Amino acid sequence: MYPARIVCLTEEPTEVLYAIGEEDRIVGISGFTVRPPRARKEKPKVSAFTSAKIGEILKLEPDLVIGFSDIQADIARDLIKAGVEVWISNHRSVEGILGYIRRLAGMVGRADAGEALARRAEEHIAAVSAAAAALPRRPRVYFEEWDDPLITGIRWVGELIRIAGGDDVFPELTEKSLARDRILADPTEVARRAPDIILGSWCGKRFRPEHVAARPGWDAVPAVRDNELHEIKSPIILQPGPAALFDGLDAIHARIAAWARTAQ
């Protein structure tokens, strides 16, 4: 028997279930969900990222609750104690996202649809990779996930930057799964690594390139000098779901391709 009443504590399971035509199984979603837009109109919002309305979730009588990462461990614990089945994924890579799509689809009896979605994503990744390989040069890219303190991009972001045709200037930090391990103790290290492009995705608030450009010692950074500071909207890149493999990857590649074709 497959789950018929699912609560999604983050956006990516909602996005996947809608994409494979199984949205009717969803009875509750995260308040941060923006994809697909209709989900916000159709489903009750019962959680944030680090907190959830446990009582409201229980009223929905879910037979499965899906969350993401160790950050939601306390929510999972409370639900498990209440007798609810919980699946917390912890994928952090492009391959992990593809595997997640396939696993989630299998859990609702739609392995075929999950496989089709994952294959479309793989084909899209291959197409972008081929386009990136044809670019005349590769930029050095600094991706900023948060501004105070400075936090660099997570693993799947670094991987998507490489696929899109760039090189992450902090490759040693992208492997760190926890945000606290990707904090830059010395912001001037960004200047020393001289990125050609700065991409910002400040989760929950608008990226302010003028604030980045005004940081002490950053005026000589190639990206600042050449006005190559760009926002990548957080819903399409900071959620480890299909959006990152399609819209997020495309947004990064567009910025890299534009730079590669105009840089001298």
Rank of each mutant, 00 (worst) to 15 (best):
V157G: 03
D63C: 06
F68H: 14
I97Y: 01
G241C: 06
P209V: 10
G96L: 05
C8G: 07
D167L: 14
S30G: 12
G158N: 01
S47V: 08
Y142Q: 04
Y18L: 12
A258P: 06
P242Y: 00
R77T: 11
G200A: 07
I197N: 01
A132P: 04
R120P: 05
P37Q: 10
S129A: 15
T174C: 05
P195V: 04
K53V: 04
V221H: 07
P13R: 06
G96A: 08
V212C: 10
A126G: 07
I75E: 03
T10L: 12
T188P: 00
D70P: 05
E145T: 12
C8W: 03
T174H: 13
S51T: 12
N227C: 11
A223Y: 03
A39K: 03
E172I: 08
L117W: 01
R35G: 02
F207I: 08
L150P: 06
V65I: 03
E172C: 07
G158L: 01
T50I: 09
G200L: 08
D78K: 15
E159W: 02
A223I: 06
G21L: 11
P222C: 02
I101T: 09
E172H: 10
D74Y: 01
G21C: 15
E123Q: 14
K176D: 04
E122R: 11
I80R: 15
A76V: 05
G217N: 07
R192M: 13
T33F: 05
R5M: 11
D186G: 02
S30A: 15
C203H: 15
L238F: 00
R103Q: 15
T262H: 14
L9D: 09
L98Q: 03
I88V: 11
A52S: 13
R77F: 08
L135G: 02
P44C: 11
D63M: 08
A220Y: 01
I75H: 01
A257N: 04
I256L: 08
A243Y: 00
E189A: 10
D186C: 00
Y100S: 07
T14H: 09
V7M: 08
R215C: 05
R103V: 08
F170N: 03
Y142V: 03
G99H: 04
F68E: 12
F32Y: 15
L238N: 15
E11S: 14
K205A: 12
E23D: 14
A130E: 15
A111Y: 00
G241K: 07
A52K: 09
M107S: 11
I88N: 11
E189L: 13
I232L: 09
R110N: 06
D226A: 15
K205R: 14
G153M: 08
Y2I: 10
P13S: 09
F68W: 15
V221R: 12
F68R: 09
S93E: 05
K205V: 10
A194L: 09
P240K: 01
I101N: 09
G200K: 06
L64Y: 05
D147V: 10
